[in-house]
Design a protein around this nucleic acid. Sequence first.
DNA 1: TATAAATAACTGACCAGTCAGTTATTTATG
DNA 2: CATAAATAACTGACTGGTCAGTTATTTATA
Lengths: 208, 208
Amino acid sequence: MLRARSDEAKDERRQALLTAALDEFFEKGFAATRMSDIAKRAHLSKGAVYLYFDSKEAMFRALVENLASPNLELIERIATNAGSLREALAGVCRIAPMLIRQTDLPRIMKVLVGDSHMFPQMVQAYRTELIERVLAMMSGLLKRAHDAGEAEVPNPDLTARIVMAPMVLSALWEAVFNSRHEADVDLDQLFQIHERMMLKALEPRSAT
Amino acid sequence: MLRARSDEAKDERRQALLTAALDEFFEKGFAATRMSDIAKRAHLSKGAVYLYFDSKEAMFRALVENLASPNLELIERIATNAGSLREALAGVCRIAPMLIRQTDLPRIMKVLVGDSHMFPQMVQAYRTELIERVLAMMSGLLKRAHDAGEAEVPNPDLTARIVMAPMVLSALWEAVFNSRHEADVDLDQLFQIHERMMLKALEPRSAT
DNA sequence: TATAAATAACTGACCAGTCAGTTATTTATG
DNA sequence: CATAAATAACTGACTGGTCAGTTATTTATA
């Protein structure tokens, strides 16, 4: 393998290793993944991997950190840019198919669920810093809409879970069942229907 | 350990081994679970486990089979006994907290998701014989309600997914985040809200 | 040539599954 | 009933193989 001397080249190599690691973790699970296979996939020797990461677990941690923040920011941007619950819901439902089909989110989620027992502290961090934040954002959105008379939401926290459930579950479905496109679901249509149903369900009793 | 001579005693021992195996698989994952630990938990030696099961994988298969059919039957009984979509939905929403809190379903689901790559054929069987059947049941219920004018359901298959999502996801949530009751959710209230939202969302435009 | 990236052989620990031997329990016999 | 023979449930040391992480050595590049 050509040597990576510059910092730039090393960053590239690091990224290539992370990509290879996610592929392997997703295909085989954390425990069953061999460091030599990650190395092979990145066209390196096993020893070289240890020039970039301290351990197998450190690779996994880097992987989760790499993915959490950009996607969280994307979702929060959509929520803050929206002027109303209606708009926010539309934005989230429109972006969800992309997040599920085009990002590594579903694959990371699957590995995180499956090997959650190995990294209890990481799973808890993922929950409080990503999932609970997204739920809190949706809950806030619902609460504000309720107070503004835009919607009728007796319990914003639980309602937020109901609103988000189809999206989160679809991501996991994609990772678990659809790796060979054997269990395809029309996500665009699914979330379009979901959006309509949620709007109708949340409509105030005396609305237009 | 007292020896199991009768068929009855052997069935009991088999069951004890399966219980121990699920505890271990759930706590450590399939790959990281040692047969000797399963044996220890059931107060037996490692060798004895192989008198009851051919292999680690055979134990896991037995575990999934043991759980799938009784729970599937329960859900289908609720659906067939219900006279209307409203009743069926109420039944499903009422039974769901029990299935999530009182059965091994969430723990099995978590292991199945996490180690899905190890048993692709088992995961596919689980999907087609359990999940798709429950979805088909709900879809049929929705379609009949639509035809009877009880509800307005343009796409029963996708709507079924939206109806079931909070329940399936709550089961996984329970298994992944709530093993130490750190992320508790009031499931009774959650599904009560869900039920109300679904009924309102599915209400025909010109309804009472 | 000096340096650091990369390699590959190596180590030590781990574990699924096996099997020769042990022992609790049942059954046959005086 | 007492006891020995037969049975099969059970044990745990062992094998063969795997793999994370280490290190001595090679090699590309500034």
